[in-house]
Design a protein around this nucleic acid. Structure first.
Length: 433
RNA sequence: UCCUCGGUAGCUCAAUGGUAGAGUAGGUGGCUGUUAACCACUUGGUUGUAGGUUCGAGUCCUACCCGAGGAGCCA
């Protein structure tokens, strides 16, 4: 009797004979004995094969297999301290499903260059750390959906094709749209504002495109963004939501991705400190902090990456910076009643140099102000008529934020670069594979 | 768009202007407890491209191509 099994759940099969299906990860020959590491997507197990057990011909066939050959192995499961992973399979039968070619390019002990690895991303996904990162991404996505579902936010998908910019400041990808032109979305927010007036609390979660010529470890041209939006919300409500959100998602990853974070050699102490409340600084306080640290910073500018890092180093958890000079923020930001020069926006800076993971705020509901801001930002009025309608028909205070999924996943996984946090990254000079 | 660094074997890298090399991967053989196994032997090159200087260029010069990570901008 042979039971199909997966490597992750192999502990339940000790003492019985199972069949494992997977790919040859590593093989160490030892004369008439062979150690075979089999990878099945759920984990890696060490299998032991002997010539006496398998017979001369099958044993020779096993030893001739290349890394990544697809196999079925059958045999008894045994707990063994000598095996990495704690369990071992005594192979008594081998089925070669698809032998791999001899020139598998990805080395296990990888000091390979990033250019090479990204070019082989379709194969790089199989290696243990990349595998772990995508498992964490999977869990983070589930945690995000659960978080909003439990709080009665309604998922409302925003369109990918859009008629114009959501924000005037960044570049858009233009695509042919029959006899017309369209643009790939750079944010679903404006649509979420419409949806919030229909459902109260909503969010969207989908791909976002930015044709920015950015070449940094924090940028992709295609990335996934989560954008909740709440009717009847103030800036303070948005900040409350943002910190509850980060606390919940990080806690979930810590709870359910222990193995993956271990594989990634992630020191989780910074993640364990992601607990409410987060420090909240006004922009003015943040600028003062920079000046106290001796950094040259001109009041009124946006914070650069080094400034963000300097601020986050003063705290042991994510920092929220709010009430920004309106001039550096998007056209739709509401003004602070106490000081109209300030916009009711908030950025959340993650620790460890991970940078800005969340940007959001309270939206302007003043029709005349928005009309003026569209002109100031040189945005085409016609394309925003529908958006202005939202202010004509029952506008209430509302707000929300956008979170970059890859920045969050990269930070949780302790990866330097966001490109490892998405299966097939798109950057300015790379769209293959 | 700007700044900086880089491109030599499948991969990671070395080579004072003077015979292009090592490790690793691949191949062959050996080994019954390996943990990046080990030992022996071995295949492997249009030095990113095009010019130029020189008796001689991987090395120096010019242009171009490609990539990386930083700025700006952003999540």
């Amino acid at each position: 009797m042979t039971t199909p099994a997966t490597i992750r759940g192999i502990g339940a099969h000790v003492g019985s004979r199972v069949e494992l299906r997977g790919w040859l990860y590593k093989q160490r020959g030892k004369g008439k004995l062979a150690f075979v590491h089999l990878r099945d997507g759920t984990g890696v197990i060490q299998a032991v094969a002997t010539r006496d057990q398998l017979g001369e011909e099958t044993f020779a066939r096993l030893k001739g297999l290349q890394q990544e050959s697809a196999l079925k192995l059958r045999g008894n499961v045994r707990a063994d301290e000598r095996a990495p992973g704690g369990y071992e399979l005594d192979v008594d039968d081998l089925e070669v499903v698809a032998p791999a070619a001899a020139d598998y390019p990805i080395a296990h002990v990888s000091d390979q260059g990033i250019d090479f690895l990204l070019g082989k991303r379709h194969l790089w996904l199989r290696s243990s750390k990349q595998h772990a990162v995508l498992r964490v991404r999977n869990e983070v996505i589930k945690a995000i959906r659960d978080f909003f579902y439990e709080r009665e936010f309604v998922l409302v998908d925003a369109p990918i094709f859009t008629p114009a910019a959501c924000e005037g400041t960044t570049n858009l990808f233009e695509v042919a749209y029959f006899e017309d032109k369209a643009y790939l979305t750079q944010s679903g927010q404006l649509y979420m504002e419409a949806a919030a007036m229909a459902h109260g609390k909503v969010y969207c979660f989908g791909p976002t495109f930015r044709a920015e010529r950015s070449k940094t470890r924090r940028h992709l041209t295609e990335f996934w963004m989560v954008e909740p939006e709440m009717a009847w919300a103030t800036l303070e409500d948005v900040m409350d939501l943002a910190e509850a959100f980060l606390e919940a998602v990080v806690a979930r990853a810590l709870e359910r991705c222990k193995e993956e974070l271990k594989t990634l050699e992630r020191d989780t102490s910074a993640l364990e400190r992601v607990r409410r409340p987060f420090p909240r600084l006004t922009y003015d306080e943040a600028v003062k902090l920079l000046h106290d640290k001796g950094l040259p910073f001109e009041y009124g500018n946006d914070l650069g990456a080094p400034d963000e890092t300097a601020i986050s180093e003063s705290f042991d958890r994510p920092v929220m910076i709010h009430r920004w000079p309106a001039a550096v923020k998007a056209f739709y930001m509401a003004r602070d009643a106490a000081n109209p020069a300030l916009a009711l926006g908030v950025d959340v800076i993650a620790p460890e140099g991970a940078g800005e993971v969340i940007g959001g705020g309270q939206r302007s509901i003043d029709l005349a102000d928005l009309e003026r801001q569209l002109e100031v930002h040189k945005l085409p009025r016609e394309a925003f008529e529908w958006y202005l309608d939202l202010r004509r028909f029952g506008a209430v205070p509302h707000g929300g934020f956008g979170l970059g999924l890859e920045r969050l996943v990269a930070w949780i996984c302790g990866r330097e670069h966001v490109r490892e946090a998405i299966p097939f990254p798109r950057t300015i000079y790379r769209k293959e594979p």
